[in-house]
Design a protein around this nucleic acid. Structure first.
Lengths: 159, 159
DNA sequence: TAAGATTGACCAGTCAATCTTA
DNA sequence: TAAGATTGACTGGTCAATCTTA
């Protein structure tokens, strides 16, 4: 495998995602939410019982500290609620409010229509294939990352 | 084509890129640069004559205003230089300094080794295929975006 | 008029340090 | 000790407005 090929794919992933992020921001902005907030709506919509902030940060692949600020803004808009967990007082259960559900119900069809429009020329088999490769990359990065951390912990010796 | 399939791929692109960004930040940080700065080094390395900030923002797919700040920090480290364009006084030609080239030469092999390690189990054909699909998505988004802008300009009438 | 660069206000992400509770 | 949430300092991204030059 040639390094240039691999490098091209990595760059392509980053470029595509950067374009996706930019356009989805432009798409959501006039609708009153950010792309990150839409993700939160999506995740919580599937989790009627709510999630802890820690769980949210894992699903969203962002730092815990960032979830705090994201939820602060969404709580101010009354789209999500932090309620105390009855069993563990360290934890908030984060849930959608009725307003949050309503917002999600309004945005989802618009979003789906837009991405179907974008992808209408790509055959289904290719879509499946690409998803699978990306998943492999994600896992590869995960393995690489844990190996790195292990190396660091062991003292990172040079000789 | 089912919307859920498309939606899955989009989410996968965003998740993979988010993991890539996070890990490459952790990778570059101890080396003294950010991921965005490494990209700048890469782009300028291929362009001995230098680029305007506008051209840089197009290649990097970021806003012009952001290039200003990025270069401010890199100029302070003496990795890049802004020189006046002899033909157009509005423009800076941005080039790598010798220190910038040296840094690039030091980082590139480390980076290539890391991504080869990450991708070593993915067959070459799949890598090519995935690149192609992502390129199609990127183009699809581009087309969608221009159509949106055109619609906005025409007054965005409801009836 | 338009195009390149900058500035200011904002959102989103990271990390390191701290507080509270398990 | 460890885990969940928060805070503060920082980078990186967007947009809108402004300044200078074409």
């Amino acid at each position: 495998m040639k390094p240039s090929l691999v490098s091209t794919l990595i760059n392509q992933v980053l470029a595509t995602s950067s374009v996706l992020l930019r356009e989805s921001q432009r798409f959501f902005r006039p609708l009153g939410v950010s792309e990150a907030q839409f993700n939160v709506l999506n995740v919580l919509h599937e989790q009627r019982a709510g999630l802890s902030q820690r769980e949210l940060s894992d699903v969203l692949v962002v730092d815990r500290s960032n979830v705090t600020l994201l939820l602060d803004r969404m709580e101010k808009e009354r789209w999500v609620a932090r309620t105390d967990d009855p069993a563990d007082r360290r934890i908030y259960r984060v849930t959608l409010t009725p307003a949050g559900r309503k917002l999600h119900a309004r945005l989802m069809p618009l979003y789906l229509r837009a991405i179907m429009e974008v992808m209408k020329d790509v055959p289904e088999a290719k879509v499946r294939e690409a998803s699978a490769v990306l998943r492999e990359i994600e896992q590869g990065v995960g393995r690489w990352s844990s190996r790195q951390r292990a190396t660091m912990k062991n003292g990172n010796v040079r000789r």
